[in-house]
Amino acid sequence: SILDLTCSDSVRLLNGSSLCSGGLQVKSNQRWSSVCEADFDLQDAEVVCRELGCGPPSLLRGALYGEAEAPVWSREFQCGGHESALLDCRSSGSARSSCSPGKAAGLTCSEPVRLVGGASRCAGTLEVKHLGEWRPVIGSDWPLKAAGVFCEHLDCGSAVSVGKKKSTYRFVLKINPDCFKLRSSLRECVEPSYSSSVLSVTCSDLLAQPSIIVPASMDGVSEAQQQGLRVSRGSSLTISCSIQPQFPGGSFQLTFTSSNTAYNYTQPAVNHSAHFLFPVTEPAHQGNYSCFYRVYVFSHNFSSESRQLSVTVSGHPDPTGFIIRALVLPLILLLENVVLYFYCKASRGQKLGRPENNKLVNFGVGAAEEGPAKEEGAHLISR
């Protein structure tokens, strides 16, 4: 018997930024044709990604990779999603000779790559899914720029280090770095090999994203819209930064920015967190805050930034307390002073009134008694 093998070369993705992305073209009768977005759906995209040896589709959008180039594929694809090649799918009998500008089918498939065994999904041994099985890539002298393609596809930034390490694996995959320059599909760049040395890649976005929070139990702090906080002037404010326990040590930098100023506050990470206290909040503390976590590992400095936290400082402390302190208390003190004044005045009048009355009475009594005595004395003298 004779084994008949047919290698598919019927679809391609052009002008994309990754190995499995670009504008879709279909080959028929030795001619490449663009596909109109209206004739292509998600089930069709699943077939294309599978045919190219890529992962499932992650983005399906027209005009993403330029306008359609003439000629245009004339029929609508009607795939069930299980086919192994796009040309195996049924198609409609309708004919299309042109495609509106910006309506060419664009497709991004996820790359069947991963980094395993590291501190995060952005570091570890490079593995590629080939023929339905995950296998490590043979360790070789890869330039950072070539390895950075994998970091890019994993949404992990750029590559900061590439190395080799021993492994118990024997059956590995060999990838030609030069293959990426042609933006070919990953399937075309991979071939089975045998080695005990595998490739280890560390990407720049190694760290998880830190979190930034304000304890909900703090007085004078209330939540506002869009993840913002409203803080009463004069109250205390604590902003806490934390991160998942990936590496020991490191430090947190709390960055504050407003319309006219910027400040940085730094503390060492203790139990993967740091707490920044502002004892008395003033209007100058109003602005945006974010946490930066920095750590030195693998002979490199890594950093990761949290989301922004918007803080608004009200013009006065808690309104009720402010009114009491600013209005009610002075009125109470004034009223107390008035009452005390009249009370003291009335008390003084009573004290002065009682001695005068007594003196008048005593004087009257004395005069009445003294009168006859004087008359009697005069009478004795005359005698």
Results as ranks from 00 to 15, higher is better:
Gln244Ser: 12
Gly220Ala: 13
Leu206Glu: 12
Val231Thr: 02
Phe247Ser: 03
Gln246Cys: 09
Arg233Cys: 13
Cys241Tyr: 04
Thr238Lys: 12
Ala216Cys: 09
Ser204Gly: 03
Gly234Asn: 04
Ser217Pro: 02
Arg233Asp: 03
Pro245Leu: 07
Gln225Arg: 15
Val221Gly: 03
Gln244Trp: 04
Ile243Ser: 00
Ser211Phe: 04
Ala224Ser: 14
Pro210Gly: 08
Ile213Arg: 14
Ser240Ala: 07
Gln227Pro: 00
Gln244Val: 14
Ile213Pro: 03
Val221Ile: 15
Gly220Ile: 11
Leu237Lys: 00
Ala216Tyr: 13
Thr238Val: 15
Val231Ile: 09
Ser240Trp: 02
Ile239Gly: 01
Gln209Gly: 03
Leu206Lys: 06
Ile212Val: 15
Ala224Glu: 10
Arg233Glu: 12
Ser242Cys: 05
Asp219Thr: 13
Leu206Asp: 10
Gln227Arg: 13
Ala216Trp: 13
Ser240Pro: 00
Gly234Gln: 04
Phe247His: 15
Pro215Ser: 09
Gln244Tyr: 10
Thr238Pro: 02
Cys203Lys: 09
Gln226Lys: 13
Pro210Val: 04
Ile213Lys: 12
Cys241Asn: 06
Cys203Ile: 10
Ser222Thr: 15
Ile243Cys: 00
Thr238Leu: 14
Gln227Ser: 12
Gln246Ala: 12
Ser240Asn: 03
Gly220Val: 12
Ser211Gly: 14
Ser232Asn: 13
Gln227Ile: 01
Pro215Lys: 07
Ser235Asn: 04
Arg230Val: 13
Cys241Arg: 07
Ile213Leu: 11
Ser204Ala: 11
Arg233His: 10
Ser222Trp: 04
Arg233Ala: 11
Gln244Arg: 12
Gln244Leu: 14
Gly220Thr: 09
Ile239His: 01
Gly220Arg: 05
Gln246Tyr: 08
Gln227Tyr: 06
Cys203Val: 14
Gln209Val: 15
Ala224Pro: 02
Gly220Tyr: 12
Ala224Met: 06
Thr238Ile: 14
Val214Ile: 15
Ala208Ser: 15
Leu207Gly: 08
Gln244Pro: 04
Val221Asn: 02
Arg230Met: 04
Phe247Asn: 06
Cys241Phe: 02
Gln225Asn: 13
Ser204Ile: 05
Ser217Trp: 09
Gly220Phe: 10
Ser236Pro: 00
Val221Ser: 02
Ser235Lys: 07
Gly228Lys: 01
Ser235Trp: 08
Ser222Glu: 11
Ser204Lys: 09
Leu237His: 00
Gly220Pro: 07
Val231Ser: 01
Ala216Gly: 10
Cys241Ile: 05
Gln244Glu: 14
Gln227Ala: 12
Leu229Asn: 00
Leu206Thr: 08
Leu229Gly: 02
Gly234His: 09
Ser240Glu: 07
Leu229Asp: 01
Val214Gln: 01
Ala208Glu: 15
Arg230Glu: 05
Gln246Ile: 11
Ser235His: 08
Gly234Leu: 07
Ala216Ser: 15
Arg233Met: 11
Phe247Gly: 02
Gln209Tyr: 04
Ser242Glu: 06
Glu223His: 12
Gln226Asn: 15
Ser217Asp: 14
Pro210Lys: 07
Pro215Arg: 05
Pro210Leu: 03
